[in-house]
Every structure is written in C-alpha cells, then in structure tokens.
C-alpha cells in the first residue's frame, strides 16, 4: 500500500536549514495498521504530509495506494483518506454540510445515503445540524474520521488521532479505527506519541527519532529487543522462631543456587525476601523457573512478571525516554 524510498524533507528557515525527515524507507502492506511512533518534532507529521501530497519531498519518493507521489498526486488523492492532527472541519459549519461537501468533492454516489451510513457507524446520528464547534472532543474527532472516510478510501492516514482526548473517547476511537480495517478492509497508517496507543492498535510500529527510522517491528518484537522481562519473586520464609532473618538468608541462598542453573536468567538482585530477575522471554521461562525453585525446596509466595514497555524500547534505542523527549 505504501512504499517509501529515501523520502526526505528539509525546511529553510532564517536560522538555516532544518532536516525534518532525513531519508526514510519503509513499506506498509495491504490491511495493516502501522504506527509511526516518536516524540514531537521527530518528523512524523512531515512524513505524513509528504505521503498525503500536502508537502513535496525534497528527496526520494513513495508509491502510495499504487500511484507515485511525484508523478501522479491526483491518483494518490483519490485513494487515500487523511485526518490531520487538528482535524479539518470548519468550526461554524454544520456537520451535515461538511460531510455533504466532502462526499460531493469526491464524487461519492448517493451522498445522502453514504452520510447516513457513516453517521450510524461513527455515532454521529442526530448531530447533522450542529456546527462542529458545538461538538464534544470525541464527537469532533469522529467527524474528522467521517470526513476522511466518506469515499471509502483503501488507505487511511491518521495524524495523532487521539491526541487530547479523554481515556474513554480514546478507547472508543481505537474501536472505530480497528473497525475500518475489519469491515472496510482499509489499511491504516497513523502517527502517535502515545505508547499505549501504538501498543494497543498497531500491527507494526516504526520508531522515528530526529527524522530517521531507528527501529521497526511488531510491538512484541520491539519489546524483545530490550534486555528481557523482569520477574519478581517473593519467597515464603520458614519460621525460625527467635532468629527471624536466618530463614531469609537460607531461603534466598537456596533460590540463588537454583536460579543460577537456568540459562534464561541473566541477572538476579535480592532485596530482603524478594528476588528481582531479568529473564529472556519471561513468558516461556516462567514455568521452568517455578519448577526449579520447587525442586530446590524454595517456596514461592508471589510471582510477578513485567514486560518491557515501548518506552523501554525507545530508551534503549535513543538513550532518552519517550516521555521526556516529548516534553
């Protein structure tokens, strides 16, 4: 659906040239939901504006929905939908008029029926006479989606689709984005600086930083690139009466010995009666871990595993946390 090669964009400002996007190569297959994850200013929006024909690349090109960005922008435009970060509805124009104009500009057959169908899907029923400025944040965002979807594009571009929404509206929008793919077979390319969003929504993630793609993969693949999962064990300590900490020492020593035999365990840190382990592929190692401890006579009171987050991935790749980079 998208094949970008060497796509780059520099801006000339009074203070010199800024390389917003420094040559990105990637592809997106039909039916995928792919996320562009990175802090603000990383080049996400610039890339999206190039792919949607709004901004001419200074170098490189891309084939979008079967048409070359440089030689056939009109062909690209007919086959894509785009929802900008700030939306695109005029504040004072009633919802019905905006949708009607959009449908007629795309030459949608039977626009009234298409609009009714979209409004039912996107929970915009009964709002057609209301101006966009009188809608709630979530309704407004669903109107933006409806404007982008009116001509049933096979490829949708969403720039920060849930920025500024409350958690409930965000979940609701995720549901609608998944539905685009499931019911209309659309391919979705979105940008986000929310880790949860990339994690919950995307089949595949491209991590962008300083105008370059620094990593690419499924959320799980990316997380596995970070040094393992964190498993925390709380040990059940046998009662030694007057010498309370003797049991601790004995239990932790036995646990250590048992864990040292396991190749998946990279690191073990003991604090009191809890042991914090760094483990490769924690989900697979967990059963083996429990069996070994059992065999060594160590009783486990509680066991917790934390998977690394995409923030840990970003931290490993760039040395900065995504949250602080975004701030």
């Amino acid at each position: 659906m998208i094949k970008a090669s060497g796509l780059a964009r520099t801006f000339t400002t009074k203070r010199g040239t800024v390389e917003a996007v420094r040559g990105v190569d990637f592809h997106v297959a039909r039916g995928e939901i792919v996320g562009f994850l990175g802090p603000n200013g990383a080049g996400k929006t610039t890339t999206l504006r190039m792919l949607t024909t709004l901004l001419a690349p200074t170098a490189g090109t891309a084939v979008v929905a079967g048409h070359d960005l440089r030689t056939d922008p009109a062909g690209v435009r007919r086959r894509i939908g785009y929802v900008a970060q700030g939306g695109g509805a005029a504040p004072g124009v009633p919802v019905g008029e905006e949708l009607g104009l959009q449908a007629r500009l795309y030459g949608v057959p039977r626009p009234t029926e298409r609009i009714a169908e979209l409004c039912a899907q996107l929970e915009l029923d009964g709002l057609l006479d209301r101006p966009a400025q009188a809608l709630s944040g979530g309704q407004r965002r669903r109107l933006d989606l409806a404007l982008g979807l009116v001509h049933r594009p096979p490829l949708m571009f969403l720039d920060e689709p849930t920025a500024g929404l409350d958690p409930h509206s965000r979940g609701n929008l995720w549901h609608h984005i998944r539905r685009m793919r499931e019911e209309d077979g659309a391919t979705v390319f979105l940008t986000t600086h929310y880790l949860e969003e990339a994690d919950a929504l995307c089949d595949r993630i491209l991590i962008i930083d300083h105008g370059r793609i620094v990593a690419e993969g499924t959320p799980d693949e990316l997380k596995r690139r970070v040094s393992g999962d964190v498993v925390t064990l709380d040990l059940a300590v046998p009662d030694h009466g007057d010498r309370a900490d003797a049991g601790d020492v004995e239990a932790t020593a036995r646990a250590r010995a048992a864990l040292a035999e396991l190749p998946q365990v990279r690191e073990a840190v003991v604090t009191g009666t809890s042991v914090r382990l760094t483990v490769d592929q924690g989900d697979r190692a967990l059963a083996q871990l429990v069996r070994s401890l059992d065999a060594a006579g160590v009783e486990v009171a509680a066991l917790r595993m934390a998977r690394p987050t995409l923030d840990d991935v970003f931290l490993t790749l760039t040395g900065r946390s995504l949250r602080e980079a975004a701030a």
């Binding site: 024909t53 709004l54 009109a74 435009r77 894509i80 939908g81 785009y82 695109g88 509805a89 500009l105």
Partner: peptide
C-alpha cells in the same frame, strides 16, 4: 489542508 487532500 482537508480540501487539498481531496482531488478538488
């Protein structure tokens, strides 16, 4: 921008 993305 919304209009520019359409083939108008």
């Amino acid at each position: 921008d919304r209009l520019r993305v359409t083939p108008v």
